[in-house]
């Protein structure tokens, strides 16, 4: 699976209005592409257009094959789409929902091992026989992700895949999607609102504003405070924590959370092998220190020390 997704002058018109202006982009296989932008920028529209849910002008090709020329079933085998809405109309068992991911396979062939693997990857094996409608929103989101993975598509399109998840599962799912790209050679395209996750896990990001693509490059190039402020209309602080990028919205007048004094910072980085005990030392960059001091309203030391519960 090394086919790249190529959007060539793709645009979407609805009821005489252009909701997505012509854009061209290359989403390489083996890489994660993040689509960022404020509400109503056209992110979901772009994803739906690529998934074949909306009539488009222009072309979308996968490995040189025009997707419009494929039958719906052939297209479904290549493109896995995870919608924002994780609706289920009947209380079907989780395993049956995941099995639906293989519905487009030739002759309805079911790969049971693939289904079990997808459930294991998304940490839902224990829920396999429960009605999917009885699950929490986050659990259901993982069931739908497992459904997409079970289909083993060349392209994974996911609309806000971590929006309903707790922080631990946000990281797990993003790591999983990254593995799908890097190890399985899939082309992964995500709509994200969490800029820190986007900066950390995406190989390239596409910025959308008012239905127009304003930038497409690596996160380091694109996700600068000025550009993000122009995009979202609010200020951001960018920096790194333990070598990982961190991007926080601060509002136009600095950080104004009423409970800011109670906010604490957790270091989730891997601990280096040389660290002897439960104590972890994290070094904050100047901009990160600014964040910490604006959050806690005290000046932050460049070096913070905390206890790693796994080693305590």
């Amino acid at each position: 699976m090394t086919a790249a997704l190529h959007l060539c002058a793709l645009s979407v018109h609805r009821q005489g209005r252009t909701v997505l202006h012509p854009l061209s982009a290359l989403c390489p296989a083996g890489a994660v592409t993040g689509i960022l932008g404020p509400n109503g920028a056209g992110k979901s529209t772009l994803l739906k257009a690529v998934a074949g849910l909306l009539p488009i002008t222009g072309r979308v090709t996968l490995g040189g094959i025009d997707l419009a020329r494929l039958s719906p079933r052939d297209r479904a085998r290549r493109i896995g789409y995870l919608p924002q809405d994780h609706r289920l109309h009947w209380p079907v068992a989780v395993r049956e929902v995941v099995r639906l991911g293989q519905l487009a396979h030739p002759d309805g062939r079911i790969n049971a091992a693939g289904i079990e693997q997808a459930m294991a990857d998304t940490d839902i094996t224990a829920l396999a026989d429960r009605p999917a409608t009885a699950l929490s929103g986050g659990e259901r989101a993982r069931v739908h992700l497992a459904r997409v993975l079970a289909g083993t598509p060349a392209v994974i399109l996911a609309d806000e895949p971590v929006a309903a998840l707790d922080p631990a599962h946000q990281i797990t799912v993003m790591e999983l999607l990254r593995r799908q790209a890097v190890h399985a050679g899939r082309c992964v395209v995500l709509v994200l609102h969490d800029l820190t996750l986007a900066a950390r896990f995406c190989d390239q990001v596409v910025l959308l504003q008012d239905g127009r693509m304003t930038a497409a490059d690596s996160p380091r190039q694109v996700m600068t405070p000025d550009r993000l402020e122009a995009l979202y209309g609010t200020r951001f602080l960018t920096g790194t924590l333990n070598g990982q990028p961190v991007i926080l919205p601060t509002g136009t007048n600095g950080y104004t959370s009423p409970s800011s004094s109670a906010v604490s910072c957790t270091v989730t980085t891997e601990i280096s092998a040389s660290a002897p005990g439960p104590t972890v030392t994290a070094t904050a960059s100047p901009s990160m220190r600014a964040v910490l001091s604006s959050v806690s309203r005290v000046s932050a030391s460049p070096v913070c020390t905390c206890t790693d519960p796994r080693r305590a």
Partner: peptide, 11 residues
């Protein structure tokens, strides 16, 4: 079962 949109993307 997954709704019209998801069904359409399943071919």
């Amino acid at each position: 079962t997954l709704g019209e949109e998801a069904a359409a993307t399943l071919g």
